[in-house]
Design a protein around this nucleic acid. Structure first.
Lengths: 229, 229
DNA sequence: TTTAATTGGTGTTAGAATAACAATAACCAT
DNA sequence: ATGGTTATTGTTATTCTAACACCAATTAAA
């Protein structure tokens, strides 16, 4: 084998950390591997990148095959390329994370076959490959990102209450926030549309429903505004 | 060719954005390509990753071959993997940036052969491949990083003045900073060692020299401190 | 040796942002 | 009607930020 050929004895994959929020905790969608290596182990959904496929496209494909969803928030994190990270050869992987509204997730043939399941972060054991490390890195990135840009809304249903929003932030940042200060800060950004609707069917005072105003956010960014929680 | 084989008709490279600071402006070390494709064009230093080489190791190797330097600050940014980014085949690249003390750079055989040169950001034309995009992304990342962690010191000589430090920040962040406020903030962090030395050979009042206290920084981080300019 | 030129070094204050804190309102279930 | 539960709202002390100007130390030139 020539030296040049040896460079081409390698492949690359994408792995996608799919986050969801069930109202209480941040969750990640994992699959149980049906084939070697690491058969039976939980792992991040991922796949080899097709020769004529952009990296981003491959990540979108993995996401869509598993969840049926398109056009959701997706961000590349970084590459993981230790020589021995894949037992069958030299495979580096590009890690992505995506944020989906957990109620939009429906079981697709692919996710059924791979027995996909949402996992809370408290109960994640040893994953296949270097996926624990990848997951950690992506979670760290999400924690960072959620403070710098209004990506948290990607995890909430279109209509949400301020308490739900706060719980989301508390769950991601693993911290407690002061209710009054949180509301003051969020509302002062003028990025929420008050829908003049309230919750129904709750056994207590119903909360007002809000919607994220994406248009206004784009406009504000154009004017130099920076989101900051 | 089987489908599996086609996945292995690809390669990956690293490209390294090497930053330096000459006291006035932020600079980047580029090479002039001696071979096709893009022969004669300026490009980021990079290379294919060896089959038995970690990505980080490859990035360190590229840096060392060009500059002779080891153990300098190096950080992965992200992968670039558009299908058509390399005219000769499917090659994705992992972008890194590194921060070196510009005076430590000496011309190595590799850098001589590739006519490496420092470039200011005002005068960078069209680079080879997608290197303009990579450079932009890395610069953006550096701007972000420099505010969150004391990486700026990696670009300064071991002994520096507060004015030099301020000019570094102004150059990277492309903004002007108030002298008194900047000094107050930096000094209040207690991360600078006052060397009780002053500049020599300057035609004006000589400035005091300081050194970054890395040990104390590590200690503070352990106690929950976060650097923030 | 005086003077000019140049950069280094320092403190105050008004305004803004943050953090800490508790009482009343609205709804359902009993 | 009462109790249980969550929603909603404002004030204040403290901290951080931003704006701003003069004297000091040195070399170069007159």
């Amino acid at each position: 084998m020539s030296e040049v050929e040896s460079f081409f004895k390698s492949a690359f994959s994408v792995d996608n950390v799919i986050f969801g929020f069930d109202g209480g905790d941040l969750k990640v969608l994992l699959i149980q591997r049906g084939a070697a290596p690491y058969r039976g182990k939980w792992a991040l959904p991922g796949d080899l990148v097709y020769p004529n496929e952009d990296l981003d496209t491959a990540a979108e494909r993995v996401l869509e095959q598993l969840t049926g969803l398109r056009g959701v928030y997706l961000e590349q994190v970084q590459a993981f390329g230790a020589v021995d990270r894949h037992p069958l050869g030299r495979v580096i992987t590009i890690a992505y994370y995506s944020l989906i509204k957990i109620d939009d997730y429906t079981v697709t043939p692919a996710s059924f076959a791979q027995s996909a399941r949402w996992h809370g972060f408290a109960h994640i054991g040893e994953l296949a490959f270097d996926h624990n490390e990848i997951l950690e890195t992506c979670l760290k990135q999400l924690k960072h990102k959620v403070r710098m840009a209004p990506v948290g809304f990607e995890l909430l249903p279109p209509k949400f209450t301020l308490t739900e929003l706060q719980q989301l932030y508390e769950s991601i940042l693993e911290t407690e926030l002061d209710k009054r200060n949180f509301r003051k800060k969020i509302l002062s950004m003028n990025l929420l549309i008050d829908l003049n609707e309230v919750q129904e069917g709750v056994a207590h005072r119903p909360a007002k429903l809000y919607q994220f105003d994406r248009e206004k956010y784009e406009q504000f960014v154009g004017e130099g505004f920076t989101f900051d929680v």
